[in-house]
Write a protein that binds this DNA or RNA. Structure first.
Lengths: 135, 135
DNA sequence: CAGTATCCCGATGGATACTG
DNA sequence: CAGTATCCATCGGGATACTG
């Protein structure tokens, strides 16, 4: 995989515009707050206001919206307790838990990237992969 | 990593608003066309119009813009040949190549996700991770 | 507590035309 | 060939206020 020259892009009509599974993933976790939300839920079940407090800066609207999208995509589960005052708990579904390796890969790369840029920003800017400048 | 309860989020002032390395990664590859561009460049060096043709639907403006951003982030290298007609080649930097595992993880999950949703969309919608509904 | 409902703005991204 | 330059539509996302 990824080694094949051409037969790679997976044509799917699911969303109409996606041409590759990588984009599908990006579509699911690419939202402004989604990876943060997922991180919060990786190990624990959490309530709405718990999330609201943890994700500093997010508005209620955004939190609700992003949670709904994650729910529709089958990533998280929303458990409503019919009581007063209301109580709603959010948790990862089994499908959602499978995102862990992806998030870890992204986390790992992020660290590496920040390190590289921190230590040698100019070096990175000048780095090149082609050695022969020749028409 | 990811196993620790709290000392996780890496406060960085690089971009001002990022609170986690995962977001850093998303910031770099989260653009509308970036993962597609990266996929094109994973194995080959390519010219501007080659990319333009491969990424069906992208406009010149968008292609230029996304390429510039990737370049600024040290992910790709832009090699200009001073000749007529002009020739510009894009390639991954060493740093850019390190994204491969990330893209592979995302690709792999995307496939898995599509399969899961395809085979059992309702099942996924009903899946839950908490078993005890109890206030 | 856990949301909705409005209003609103700026960034993202697209169409089109032009150029060194 | 490889871009720029404009103009424009959309929409993600935020502030604020209200509610079952």
């Amino acid at each position: 995989m990824m080694k094949t020259p051409s037969p790679d892009s997976i044509e799917l009509a699911a969303s109409g515009r996606l041409t590759c599974a990588v984009e599908t993933t990006l579509d699911v976790i690419g939202g402004r707050w989604k990876v943060l939300i997922l991180k919060e839920l990786l190990d624990d079940v959490k309530r709405f206001n718990q999330l609201h407090r943890s994700l500093h800066g997010i508005t209620q609207k955004m939190l609700t919206q992003q949670l709904r999208e994650l729910e529709e995509d089958g990533i998280i589960h929303r458990e409503v307790y019919l009581q007063v005052p209301p109580k709603v708990e959010y948790s990862l579904t089994d499908l959602g838990k499978t995102l862990k390796p992806v998030l870890e890969a992204m986390h790992h790369w992020g660290i590496q990237y920040l390190t590289a840029r921190d230590l040698a920003p100019e070096d990175a800017a000048n780095s090149r992969t082609i050695g022969t400048i020749e028409g």
